[in-house]
Simulated assay, not measured.
Amino acid sequence: MSKILNVQHLGKSYLSGGKSLTVLDDISFEVASGTSYAIVGPSGSGKTTLLGLCAGLDTPDTGTVALCGSHLTELDEDGRASLRNKKVGFIFQNFQLLPTLSALENVSVPLELRGTKGAANTARTLLEKVGLGDRTHHYPSQLSGGEQQRVALARAFANRPEILFADEPTGNLDEETGERVVELLFNLNKEAGTTLIIVTHDLNLARRCDGLMRLKGGRIFNSETASHP
């Protein structure tokens, strides 16, 4: 099975109060195409920073990231943006929907920007899959948190990404709503054959993945193959 993500000896530091603060130290791991992988750890362990580096949203100080067959460190900012646009999907804790667009428009606009034909029909089909077929013309402010995250799910899968990065996808949801969103996420992912990388502090969610890595203080604490319930 081919490796869609290959991270080797990754390091990242930031200046804080005039001092260098190491956020990630010598991180190495691989993720096979079509699998799911969780990155877990407490707040401040470097999870979100690592996700940003893996997705090419930021650049490391040391080490390399190969994503979808491209070495991110060899691409400039435009090259990384182009790769993300073509092959990567995102789901964020705070949904990041455009408030002035309806649910349908939030899902269809990224498709229209890529010149995809039938964008509205594709968006409508995806919204129906996540149970929002009757809320297509509602704006984010008219939707609950769970509904907004379901719109975000539909948007993330609209471009048929090869890999999907989810940063605390249930972090702003109550337990019951979060479980429903997780079910939809894994079902859509299985149907699309997408690789799924989840950053979470929720071990129950992490253990649903094919593999997981624990971060502590910017280093790998341990990694394991998850056992599914």
Rank of each mutant, 00 (worst) to 15 (best):
S144P: 02
R84I: 11
E147K: 00
A66G: 03
V31N: 10
A38N: 08
T22E: 15
D78R: 15
E224N: 06
G118Y: 01
Q149P: 06
G18M: 11
K19Q: 15
A120Q: 07
N222D: 15
I39D: 05
Q142A: 15
S70W: 00
H228A: 08
G52V: 07
G11Y: 06
L24K: 00
G56S: 15
G41A: 09
S36K: 09
A119K: 02
S28N: 08
G211E: 06
M213H: 06
L188D: 02
D167Y: 09
T194H: 02
G218E: 01
H228K: 12
T116Q: 10
L104E: 08
L51C: 02
L173G: 00
R84S: 09
M1H: 14
R84Y: 05
L203Y: 13
I91S: 02
A81N: 12
S13M: 09
L10W: 03
T200H: 12
G193V: 12
A192N: 04
G17I: 01
R207M: 10
N187H: 09
K117R: 12
R180K: 13
A66F: 03
G89V: 04
V65R: 06
L72P: 04
L101K: 05
V31C: 10
G44T: 11
S13C: 12
F29K: 08
N121G: 10
L126D: 01
L57P: 08
F29C: 10
V88P: 00
G131C: 12
N204T: 14
K19F: 11
K216L: 15
L75E: 07
E162M: 12
E128D: 14
Q8L: 13
D76I: 04
S102W: 00
C54D: 01
